[in-house]
Simulated scan of single mutants.
Amino acid sequence: MPQDPPVELTEYSLSALLTPPASPVEPDDFDDFWRATFEEFGTGPVSWELTRDLAPTATHRVSEIRFHSSAGEAAAAYVVLPHTLGSAPRGLVVGHGYGGRTAPDLDRAPDDTAAIFPVAPGTHAGTASRFPALPDEHVLAGIAHRDTYSHRFSAADIWRAATVLLEMVPAAAGALDFSGGSFGGGIGAMALPWDARFRRAVLDVPSFGDHDVRLTRKCTGSGEAVRQHLQRHPEDRPVLDYFDAAIAARRLRIPVHVTAAVQDPAVDPRGQFAVYHALTGPRRLSVRAAGHLPGEIGELSDRLALQAGIDFLALPDERLA
């Protein structure tokens, strides 16, 4: 019996990663599927309610809300609104990694920015969901069909969170951005091409890029659960092509900043760079020494990537040409 490949901890050659790979083959009806999904879940009003106010910061009010998820259940989100909005506030939707979130990432919201931090269906401990919370289970939930796969609803809730934020702060329309890392980066790449309200995006170590490559490598992330599942159920493989961040990224026309790692035990660097290479609009790349690594090197890499994303979203428009 063939042995599973080892977990890949080797640092990839930057020159190899910067060479565009062959593009993954996409389904003929990829656009039709996502446009129909956006029409179903991304248009019209979204009901929401305040759950509780949290401790404010020197610059922002902070609250937790519930909104009606595309999954037909309550979803949680955290909202931070500047004490003084000013005449031209910026808006920001922030995705999260597969560890979920229990609070807003306050360091991602500059003083002039109103931000919403949605929690993907199933990943918030305080809301009941048909989706499991554990990453290795969530990544497989509904995978037998494109209409039922968990990632479809995670992407759709990015749109719905944007609707909620713009209802709260209408003046942020026209200056609405997205930032997401790992799971959130891949989900963001899937969601953004279909929603014209977004102005710019930051994708940090984005997951789900080029499944043909991703599935060749044993890893420490949720991709390993998918790889093992497909060994038992190869009939589910075609579903993943509708949820490939590198295929979706071909449709992105807004300016995008990608931070991609040359070493990452959880998200294959080749898939991260595939998302960057797929972009056809204005794009910028920052190269990380490491992604998803504990310890001092990993923490420093995370901080540098965070600041690079914040700086990109703050650039004047003329700097993005």
Rank of each mutant, 00 (worst) to 15 (best):
S47K: 03
G174D: 02
R35N: 15
L279Y: 09
G184V: 09
A245Q: 12
A77I: 01
T259Y: 05
D32G: 09
R283V: 00
S222Q: 14
L81T: 15
F67E: 06
A77R: 06
E49S: 14
P206C: 13
R250K: 11
G271A: 05
L252M: 15
G97A: 12
H211A: 07
Y149T: 04
G223H: 10
G97Y: 09
I187K: 06
D212F: 11
V287A: 05
P56K: 08
H229F: 12
A128M: 09
T163V: 12
S129N: 07
T51N: 08
Y98R: 14
D105C: 09
R288K: 09
G95L: 03
G188W: 02
R283L: 03
P104D: 12
W34E: 05
A289Y: 08
S23V: 09
P282H: 04
R270T: 02
L140W: 06
D268C: 06
V256C: 07
E318H: 15
Q228K: 15
P2M: 11
E167G: 08
A246M: 04
E40P: 00
I65C: 04
V256N: 00
A321Y: 00
R284F: 05
L230W: 06
D28S: 13
P121M: 10
I310H: 03
I297P: 01
E40T: 14
A133S: 11
S301F: 03
A172T: 03
